[in-house]
């Protein structure tokens, strides 16, 4: 139900916003280009190189009067997995949501500072947030396939917003490519018309990833994508993240320190000095460095499990 509501909102803002034109065109072109290559493997090669750099400069995030995140400066590199770690309430999820303009969806929430996607200011006047969310996809903690939709329609849901622009054959190709890209195709190809909710938790999460990559985003944000999954499904998602980084810029929030150590190239540690104060980015560096020889004592204490 919630899913339907979201798609309806996105659809309506699409209709009324003139600024979405360029975004939708770019989207349909990419989808058409991808559709000409029918198998997942060749599509992977054709889509390589679209990953983009996110530059975060002097970003402060607020919920009304509450200052949630303070003075973040960070470069998120293309074709790398950047993990955001830190204890609950340190602002890492809030920060993640600012990277695709989802933070402002909370009433009273606002963003100060600059976030650019390959030099283009996401928050500049006239930039359509819906287009930003297309280019910067999000995968959530709890797998959230649209409950009434089939597996096929779940993946195609983003494309369906452009209904009429894409032929059925092209749509089929994008669905297959996306499911292959999410390592799910072999498991579901014979039941594409069955409900997405019939899948296991791990499969549902891969379905959500397939849905996110169907619209050819440039960045994938993942908010604790494995916290609701068992260890086997978790490893499957981590493998997938490793494959996806050849095509996308990936940012993942995780509470699982070993997951950050295993799956990411760069790790950013957020910390909250005391409750009521804003969260800050304490240290960012190569994951190997953060987990073997961090610079800051607060980072060392956190990754070593010395809380308090």
């Amino acid at each position: 139900m919630e899913g339907k509501k979201v798609s309806a909102t996105v659809g309506s803002s699409e209709k009324k916003e003139g600024a979405t034109e360029s975004g939708s065109e770019q989207l349909s072109q990419t989808a058409a280009a991808a559709a000409t290559t029918t198998t997942g493997t060749t599509a992977t090669a054709s889509a390589a190189g679209v990953a983009k750099t996110i530059e975060v400069r002097d970003v402060n995030l607020f919920y009304g009067d509450f200052h949630a995140v303070e003075d973040v400066n960070l470069t998120i590199q293309p074709n790398k997995v950047t993990a955001l770690i830190g204890s609950s309430g340190c602002g890492k999820t809030t920060f993640l949501r600012s990277l695709n303009r989802m933070h402002e969806l909370t009433p009273g929430a606002r963003v100060e500072g600059h976030i650019t996607l390959d030099g283009e200011d996401m928050y500049a006047r006239g930039v359509d947030p819906v287009r930003v969310r297309r280019l910067v996809g999000m995968v959530f903690q709890q797998p959230n396939p649209f409950p009434t939709m089939s597996i096929y329609d779940n993946v195609a849901s983003g494309l369906n917003l452009n209904a009429g622009k894409i032929k059925k054959s092209q749509r089929d190709a994008v669905v297959e490519r996306s499911l292959r890209g999410a390592n799910l195709w072999e498991e579901v190809k014979d039941r594409l018309d069955k409900p997405g909710l019939g899948l296991s938790g791990g499969q549902q999460q891969r379905l959500c990833i397939a849905r996110a990559i169907a619209v050819e985003p440039e960045v994938l944000l993942m908010d604790e994508p494995c916290s609701a999954l068992d260890p086997v499904a978790t490893l499957a998602i981590e493998d997938l993240i490793g494959e996806l980084k050849s095509r996308y810029t990936i940012v993942i929030v995780t509470h699982n320190m070993q997951q950050a150590a295993r799956a990411s190239d760069l790790t950013a540690f957020f910390n909250l000095e005391e409750s009521g104060k804003p969260g800050r980015l304490v240290e960012v560096g190569e994951t190997e460095m953060i987990f073997t020889n961090p610079t800051e004592k607060a980072t060392e204490d956190y990754v070593s499990g010395r809380f308090g």
């Binding site: 320190m257 070993q258 150590a261 987990f291 073997t292 020889n293 961090p294 980072t299 060392e300 990754v303 070593s304 499990g305």
Partner: peptide, 10 residues
């Protein structure tokens, strides 16, 4: 059992 990192690991 403890997944030591950083100084502990070293």
């Amino acid at each position: 059992t403890q997944s030591p990192v950083a100084t502990d690991l070293r």
